[in-house]
Design a protein around this nucleic acid. Structure first.
Length: 469
RNA sequence: GGCGCGGUACCCAAGCGGCUAAGGGAGAGGUCUGCAAAACCUCGAUUCGCCGGUUCGAGUCCGGCCCGCGCCUCCA
């Protein structure tokens, strides 16, 4: 049985999709006003784990991730640069997708853009106006949270406490828009001179932040769908407001399971531009941390715990991944005796059970990784004693590939030939070794290492590996 | 002030009432090897932030305290 921690209910609950065998998933995507940092990618990696695991367990997953391509900051910064919001967001959009690919995150089925779903948003706002839940003020339209009794149920914030909560006062005064009640939020913002706006049946203007997710999720996934993910910072106000809009409009439950991922901090501190610790994916790659190590690092801490990023942890992640890769390599580049060993089947079955049970328990990745590493250790131990036959090697390869459908650490199958000049060097070294010229042999090995090839002398002869980029 | 997360070996990190406290990294010693690499074997927390309590039995439950972190209308 699969169980997840649902933020709304505040506990781990059994997971049952609305339609058997199909999970409808909506995840909050980037606001493309800047380059994504590794904290953003932590959330996307968590969602990738969730999605790949659901597929691993036999579900189809229909996944929608929104792209926020219009908001206050985008308008401000595009204006400052004197370009359209489309021109402004394009490089960030490209960079986001490049990161998704680099980290081997399974792409969503759709990435709807906010600017392409204005009519869908207007339709909901229209409906909320008609129901008297939304009201107009100075050209803007606000959602009256007093009209939605369930307001605060996700974030556990009580409505009457909202305005007395400290810190809030200053922010309310700073707000440029007049509202009936301080806690009400904007569905539609009045146009301002020189800023983008849309002519619509509810008047000119641009959407508030929250409405796009209500509009796009219901369009592609239905008015009630299975899972909605995001970072914990989205619980309030973003997701709270989505619930209010969607449920007030549709009159039915919005989301069945809310899964939120905690933050990533760096060296024990919150990431902040001012601290200079806000790393992008490219920053890490430039520092020599391979993408798979980044993936492993972001994957390796349970999603509901704060992940403390350090470069030491990144190096450890790299080494851990290497252990998996070396094991896979061993299975592919070794001769196996013609024997049978029943133990292997038992080990594989046990690892598979533990892997599934771990992830089924609210995505307990530690248990799942333990299953993988225990299998590797046991298998290596048998391998060292030459007690794994050809058939068992196939079993192990299949198990590894199966786990890797979720973890995605193994390299893509690649061309396994050395460029001729390098192959010639390997040959020359073999001749040198046969004539006991170990000095020359070691020179060649060092040369090849500089060129990204590591040589290993085994009982079956010399073999080479590509060193992780 | 409100809501929430966490403090387990040098580092990362499971376990959440009961066999010897997972797993990975780093470290020490050994095996194999021309040397390496990889791998294997062995070692490594009498102890789980602190203090009380419940229990036959507690990192695991209860109470108090200390410390770190996040959110509270920009934020993954």
């Amino acid at each position: 049985m699969i169980k997840f921690f649902d933020t709304l209910r505040g506990e781990v609950v059994p997971f049952e999709p609305l339609l058997p065998g199909e999970v409808r998933l909506y995840t909050c995507g980037p606001t493309v006003y800047n380059y994504a940092h590794i904290g953003n990618f932590r959330a996307y990696i968590f969602e990738d784990l969730l999605k790949r695991f659901l597929r691993f367990m036999g579900s189809r997953v229909l996944h929608v991730m929104n792209i926020t391509d219009v908001d206050d900051k985008i308008i401000r910064d595009a204006g400052a640069r004197g370009v359209s919001i489309g021109e402004f967001t394009e490089p960030y959009l490209k960079s986001f997708f490049a990161g998704i690919e680099t980290l081997r995150i399974a792409p969503a089925d759709r990435y709807p853009l906010a600017t392409e779903h204005i009519p869908e948003m207007v339709r909901i706002i229209r409906g909320l106006l008609d129901k008297g839940i939304a009201y107009r003020k100075d050209g803007s339209i606000y959602f009256s949270i007093a009209k939605f009794p369930g307001y605060g149920k996700l974030s556990k914030i009580k409505r009457d406490e909202l305005q007395t909560t400290s810190r809030i006062g200053a922010r309310i005064e700073a707000d440029e828009y007049e509202k009936e009640s301080a806690q009400d939020f904007a569905l539609w913002k009045a146009p301002k001179p020189g800023e983008p706006s849309w002519e619509t049946e509810i008047g000119p203007g641009r959407p508030g932040w929250h409405i796009e997710c209500s509009a796009m999720s219901s369009k592609y996934l239905g008015e009630t769908f299975d899972i909605h993910c995001g970072g914990v910072d989205n619980i309030f106000p973003h997701h709270e407001n989505e619930i209010a809009q969607s449920e007030a409009f549709a009159g039915k439950p919005f989301v069945r399971y809310w899964l939120h991922c905690h933050h990533l901090i760096v060296d024990g501190e919150k990431m902040a531009k001012s601290k200079g610790n806000q790393y992008t994916l490219d920053d890490l790659l430039r520092r020599g941390i391979p993408a798979t190590a980044v993936r492993f690092l972001l994957l390796g801490t349970h999603y509901r715990k704060v992940l403390n990023f350090t470069f030491e942890a990144a190096d450890q992640a790299k080494a851990s991944v290497q252990r998996v890769l070396d094991f896979a390599y061993e299975l592919d580049h070794r001769s196996f005796p013609e024997i049978r060993n029943e133990d292997v089947q038992r080990l594989v079955a046990e690892a598979d059970r533990k892997f599934r049970d771990g992830l089924s328990d609210d995505l307990n990745i530690s248990t799942a990784l333990t299953a993988l590493f225990e299998l590797i250790r046991e298998a290596n131990s048998l391998l060292a004693r030459n007690k794994i036959g050809r058939g068992e090697a196939d079993l192990l390869r299949a198990a590894l590939r199966s786990f890797d459908e979720v973890l995605v650490l193994l390299p893509e199958p690649q061309e396994e030939t050395l460029p001729p000049d390098l192959a010639a060097l390997v040959e020359e070294r073999e001749r040198a070794r046969r004539s006991m010229d170990f000095k020359r042999a070691d020179e060649i090995r060092a040369e090849l290492l500089r060129r990204g090839i590591i040589l290993e002398d085994t009982r079956d002869g010399v073999r080479w590996k590509i060193v992780q980029p």
